[in-house]
Design a protein around this nucleic acid. Sequence first.
DNA 1: AACATATTCAACCGCTGGAAA
DNA 2: ATTTCCAGCGGTTGAATATGT
Length: 434
Amino acid sequence: MPNPEGGRRDIAITDGVKMTGSSVVAATVVAVTVVGPLLGLMSFSLVATMTLFLIVSPLMLIFVPVLTVTVAILAAAMVGFGVAAAMWTVGIAAMVCRGREIGIGSGVAKKMVEWVENVKRGQWTPEEDNKLASYIAQHGTRNWRLIPKNAGLQRCGKSCRLRWTNYLRPDLKHGQFSEAEEHIIVKFHSVLGNRWSLIAAQLPGRTDNDVKNYWNTKLKKKLSGMGIDPVTHKPFSHLMAEITTTLNPPQVSHLAEAALGCFKDEMLHLLTKKRVDLNQINFSNPNPNHNANNFNQMVDNEAGKIKMDGLEHGNGIMKLWDMGHGFSYGSSSSSFGNDERNDGSASPAVAAWRGHGGIRTAVAETAAAEEEERRKLKGEVMDQEEIGSDGRRGDHRMMMMRSHQHHDQHQHHVFNVDNVLWDLQADDLINHMV
DNA sequence: AACATATTCAACCGCTGGAAA
DNA sequence: ATTTCCAGCGGTTGAATATGT
């Protein structure tokens, strides 16, 4: 698509500020300005040192041949430095230009680009907030690239968009999360994993960033403190049981040593890194009450929006959260949040979701396998897109996952200990922690 | 009071995929 | 069919603040 402003393609680094001829010149000037004085200083140092040496040396004549060679070498070195500096100068300019083009997002190039382009970063000031909010109130949020320009802000479009969506939007709720909100986050995280946008969609006025931060800073610790692994939502005791039944005795003893330390969370996190072979996933449903049915019902309600009443109040669904005592991970056979089966493994529903990246950091699934699986599902999912009427990608993903469950009826189960391969060496676990 | 450490959370980064040309 | 633009997403960072020593 031709750029409407006649420039080259925008790049990610500043999200919409284009490279222009003046920027190239400015970048070069900046680079030369930095390198020039450095070169001058180096030359001056060399000349001064040599002069001083020649003046003070009484044995100058004796060492003339040596000095000649030395000076020749140093001169050659200076030429080399000069060439290197010139190349560096050109390189910096090129890096800035190229960085602008392809989106290099770190290091000198980034700083140069920021400086050259005069794009501000960091905390927003109240004045900036006012400018952005009043502009959006008048013109809407149609083209984020143009918004900072038109609003008189020295920000990139992406920064403006994030500021608006995460902070300035009038429908946002600021302040502490309520217990009910915590409840919802934990329940949905147990099924969706780190799908923050999907979880946030269940909490009016909260952004995915809010939910993510709250989870990482509060809820994770809260669950750990209650003896529940925040990654798998399983009790630690179950994970330890899995360790002892799965690993060889020497490995178990190493793990036990590690467990005695103060790295419980890290260890358990690593222990949940199971290899997922998507070709062997079994989404069959040995338990007629398991979560897949409950979840599918919820997804069907209100065009893909999950119905909280059913989650919170029952119909055979376990109540995870006891308002008086915090989280309650019971052993109900029809549990939703914990989804624990008698053998300690997660149910197919949870496994299905996790198999699609719900707990990417915990499940050592390969990106390639996941991508292939997505592609396989894509056609089927597209047929169901109308269910997610608001067009959010998360809803598509939900549909994909649901679709996947139906699609792979005859495959094996991800988290069933009988089928899981543990791919971590005990030494690796310990080394990582230490 | 001064310093060190931990916590919080706004802002950012890089990637992805849909839409548009 | 391909290229380009744009917005959404999850992970990460780092400044500001709180808490501990």
